[in-house]
Design a protein around this nucleic acid. Structure first.
Lengths: 229, 229
DNA sequence: GTCTCAGAATTGTCAGACAACCTGACAAGG
DNA sequence: CCTTGTCAGGTTGTCTGACAATTCTGAGAC
């Protein structure tokens, strides 16, 4: 696996060509529209309408919808089409519980973790706090905040666990897109994360764990409260 | 959510019609062929060949292949087609490490877990040991063995974690299909699992955890050794 | 032996079509 | 009033056929 900061995967390891298929671009555009709030949760994603609206064929749209369904951002019912998922309180609870399992596993391995991975956590935190200081857009802040949490899972060194965490984060972004007004909390959370990393740097894993747990529980509660209203 | 044993979702809650699409049946048939050993790992899954061989159209095959790729059973390279994944030692290690995180999380929650979930573990174990006693087929034994491990993850009560575990198990089945000769170990493992559940019933979670860890590490080693040959 | 290049094979995407199915409404009958 | 039968409209599931882009293959040139 390529580590961060332009590792040398051969002479041209840093090069990367965006080999994006039409299907992938379609899926990405749908994701953006969902997270941006252009498409409300629950709305039907009609194949023909999307096809002519995006200028692609129906099979392409269909395949892209399959991706979204696999990611949990939408649900497909036979002969009834696919609809954007509506985050229920139950699913938010489940996502947060799963998050705690994955991120906790990462934090528990802080000491044994590869220094590169520990560094990745620091970088993710810095990217987030910088964006907060620069008063970046709401979506950018969200992405960086969640990227930090994923970097915690990265401490396990397991690509599959990271992939799972990224999927969970996608669902969380969907839920957050429903409750834009949490944006003002983003700044407060920056301090919380700094404190967490400080505990880790002091090798106080147990304290970091319980700190993380309460942080995740707080997030769960605040999202559910915002949704329930 | 409907609980087990014919819950009353209205007057006809126990009824359930299998709503299987052609795509799903195609994917299932491919999975069967892979796990059964009809298709070796690494072989190319050509769309037209599969289409006329299965009596379905190319788009249908294509969509089914997309499912397999999403499950990790196959890999797709742009313009080069999809091939059955070849389990590397690295990926087996990763799957087992991820398994440890998920199953460990389940075991850790043994005491707080819903009695139904604890019962599900007992039932999964019994189904497995019964099959071992009846000298069932190799694949059936494998499925039941892995189903037991998934039932441990079920202790978390998180559908998403269970889904992740099921995905990992699929990859493991792919690896095991490559090394049929581990079959004779299945009987020995039954005793191991009985011992694990006995520790749980005694509420000795810590002992169960370390027991599980060594069991998973043993499995990892034996699979990798068998693959490496 | 290595390089180059035309042709075959395969995938990615498209257009059009049809059957199966869901939804809603309306009439018929208890 | 409530249930059932029927029909029209729209949507999905699947098929057929096609074409461009890309990759693989093998023969010929140096």
């Amino acid at each position: 696996m390529s580590s961060s900061s332009a590792a040398a995967d051969g002479p041209f390891g840093s090069l990367h060509l965006e080999h994006t298929s039409t299907v992938e671009r379609t899926a990405e555009e749908l994701r953006r529209a969902i997270f941006e709030g252009d498409i409300e949760s629950g709305t039907a994603l009609r194949e023909v309408a999307l096809a002519e609206s995006l200028g692609v064929s129906r099979p392409t749209v269909r395949e892209a919808l399959g991706i979204l369904v696999a990611e949990g951002l939408a649900t497909r019912e036979p002969h009834r089409g696919v609809h954007v998922s509506t985050p229920e309180a139950d699913s938010v609870r489940d996502v947060c519980r799963a998050r705690w399992v994955l991120e906790g596993a990462g934090v528990r391995r802080w000491r044994e973790a590869d220094p590169d991975l520990r560094n990745a956590v620091h970088e993710a935190l810095r990217a987030y706090t910088d964006a907060v200081a620069a008063e970046d857009t709401y979506q950018a802040l969200n992405s960086l905040h969640l990227a930090f949490h994923v970097s915690l899972v990265g401490l396990t060194g397991s690509p599959r666990l990271v992939a799972m965490a990224e999927n969970l984060v996608l669902e969380l972004k969907l839920a957050l897109a429903q409750v834009e007004r949490i944006a003002r909390n983003a700044h407060d959370q920056a301090d919380t994360h700094i404190a967490l990393v400080r505990l880790l740097d002091a090798d106080d894993v147990d304290a970091a764990l319980s700190f993380l747990q309460t942080h995740l529980e707080d997030a769960e509660r605040s999202i559910i409260r915002a949704l329930g209203h």
